[in-house]
Design a protein around this nucleic acid. Structure first.
Length: 555
RNA sequence: GUACCCGUAGCUCAGCUGGAUAGAGCGAUGGCUUGCGGAGCCAUAGGUCGUAGGUUCGAAUCCUGUCGGGUACACCA
């Protein structure tokens, strides 16, 4: 429907002015019509003509070409062309299937990326939820979607944790780990990381020992050691971490990852590649291997440190190569926090020097921090962090406080929607009470709106159908419903999940306005209206589904 | 010091590939109410879009400066 009209405009422009000009339709205020275009304004600028005259000429041509598919085409304001569709045309928009522009393409989405032996904080929750939705969106656009999870099972943070773990155990005694009850393991590991981190900063002896432990861990991977006492400790606590991650993902109800790529898996490849290009792309400097980003307006970073160990940068090189070798992707999306933005630019710029193609297909999205309302600030150091599970806890507490019976489905909807409704990029302020509230722009509100619509449908035993000759209020709702595929397409194209949230909330408002003044059951137009309610409920359910939020039949 | 992100109503945010009177939610005030789930609907108040310039017929949107908040800048991830 939309494409048809866009094509008609392009054709009319070609016919009248003999130029190829794209014509993008936007959704104007209801008073102006169903669609609007500003091509006349752009053409007028191009040719130095009066925009209103151009618009008039175009609208005459469009009326001829579109015939009875439209009921009104008018010129307004500085030179907009507003188009009002006939009911019949508008209604075709309800049945048009969603676009699948990425059919046949392979798209990788990397997100969540927790590090074993480190606590999961609220930021991980954010990237996990955003990534889950981006992947769902990409999938809905027809692409073969591969969900990747990259995590640091080697590196200095592992050295810190492991140093503290061995110390706590009184030596390399893996059997002592069995004494720690399963539920306490995440917190126990978190505490060890904090100890290790503190010791590294405050104690020179400990620092040296931690560096040695770090090296030892790399050694385990190089030699394939799984049998020594030290190896037992390492592999056991590493496994604990992965179990803990799985537990969180399971609780969140996110789509399972297709593959976990631990850093240890890409270390060798990354190191080798950096070494191969040392002297050309990378340079030796002060005993380390660096990339001189300053030549490109960026900053310089170390890829292999003076201990001869690869840093995160070199591993990232190995990761990208692994992705490219294993998948030959059409597009690769990486989602991390803002703080990694400039670091990633340096890494990508360096890889671009010898592997331009995969870099040109890679998009790095970044998001801000999660703050709790009331000024509780989170620091990733010293252990006073808000963990991912804490967020769920405060949401549950807010739900309990509101006097309703706690329901995990509603809690999850509250948290997910609160995190997703803002545009990715800036920091977000999480307000548990607002998120769980049933009034206002919240996840539970939309769940409720859906349940309410289903309830109407359950109550009627009559047939539905015959949606024609729309009344004004019905038409408003139909118009809003036809926006859905356009919103999804845009959200998928621009990787902006919050567009779905905004739309669903507006849809619910549109429905409530309709419902306020119009009966459904035992109205002469019951059959038509039942169908409208069905379409509305299905759209809500589908949209919430893309957000990873379930839509219960009743609540 | 250099770079990146952010600055829109009291609060939390949409709007940003320039376009028609800047929109929501929460909070405030006032209505609707024997309602198919009112967890709603309607209305009022509240904004010189941080600020100063520039480009343009037209700027919240683009450019430059500036102020404020955050982040990154060599061997952490």
């Amino acid at each position: 429907m939309k494409q048809e009209i866009e094509q008609a405009i392009v054709a009319a422009v070609k016919e009248l002015f003999d130029v190829d000009e794209s014509a993008e339709l936007s959704r104007p205020d209801e008073q102006f019509g169903d669609y609007s275009t500003n091509v006349a304004l752009r053409l007028a600028k191009q040719f130095g003509k009066n925009p209103r005259e151009v618009a008039e000429q175009l609208s005459v041509k469009l009326r001829e070409n579109l015939g009875d598919r439209v009921i009104d085409i008018s010129v307004a304001g500085p030179g907009f062309i507003n188009i009002r569709l006939s009911d019949a045309t508008l209604l075709t928009g309800l049945t048009s299937s969603g676009q699948v522009p990425n059919t046949g393409k392979k798209i990788l989405v990397e997100y969540s990326d927790p590090n074993p032996l480190k606590p999961l904080h609220a930021g991980h929750l954010y990237t996990t939820l955003v990534g889950d939705v981006i992947a769902r969106l990409v999938e809905s656009s027809g692409a073969e979607t591969i969900r990747l999870n990259y995590g640091g099972d080697v590196g200095l943070h592992v050295g810190k944790s492991l140093w503290a773990i061995v110390r706590q155990l009184g030596g390399e005694y893996p059997e002592k780990l069995d004494e720690i009850p399963e539920p306490e393991r995440p917190a126990w590991l978190g505490a060890r990381y904090v100890e290790g981190n503190d010791a590294y900063e405050d104690d020179e002896t400990a620092k040296a020992e931690i560096i040695a432990v770090n090296k030892k861990v790399y050694g385990l991977h190089e030699t394939g050691d799984r049998d020594s006492a030290f190896a037992h400790v390492y592999w056991t606590v590493r496994q604990w971490s992965y179990e803990y991650f799985a537990h969180l993902y399971d609780q969140l109800g996110v789509v399972p990852f297709d593959r976990f790529i631990p850093e240890s898996e890409v270390t060798a490849l990354g190191t080798q590649t950096v070494k191969e290009h040392t002297g050309s792309v990378y340079q030796e400097s002060e005993g380390a291997v660096v990339f001189d980003g300053e030549a490109y307006g960026l900053h310089t970073r170390v890829f292999i440190n003076s201990e001869g160990l690869p840093t995160y940068e070199a591993k990232e090189v190995g990761l990208l190569e692994t992705k490219w070798n294993d998948y030959h992707f059409d597009k690769s999306i990486v989602i991390t926090a803002n703080e990694q933005a400039q670091y990633m630019q340096v890494v990508f710029k360096s890889i671009e020097q010898f592997q331009a193609e995969p870099i040109s297909r890679t998009t790095h999205l970044t998001h801000g921090f999660v703050k709790l309302t009331g000024g509780i600030k989170m620091s990733s150091r010293k252990g006073n962090i808000v963990s991912a599970l804490d967020i769920l806890e405060v949401a549950r507490a807010a739900g309990a406080k509101s006097g309703r019976t706690p329901d995990e489905t509603v809690t999850l909807a509250a948290v997910k929607y609160a995190f997703l409704k803002n545009r990715i990029g800036a920091d977000i302020v999480y307000d548990p009470e607002e998120s769980i509230a049933l009034e206002g722009n919240s996840g539970p509100y939309l769940q409720y709106a859906h349940a309410r619509a289903r309830s109407i449908l359950r109550k009627s035993e009559n047939q539905q159908g015959g949606l024609t000759d729309l009344e004004a209020d019905e038409r408003m709702l139909v118009r809003k419903l036809t926006e859905y595929p356009e919103v999804i397409a845009k959200a998928a194209q621009e990787l902006l999940p919050h567009l779905i949230c905004t739309y669903l909330y507006e849809l619910a408002q549109t429905f409530n306005r309709f419902y306020e003044n119009n009966r459904v059951i035992s109205d002469p137009r019951e059959a038509s209206r039942l169908q409208l309610v069905t379409l509305y409920a299905n759209t809500l359910k589908d949209g919430l589904g893309l957000l990873g939020i379930t839509a219960p039949e009743s609540m």
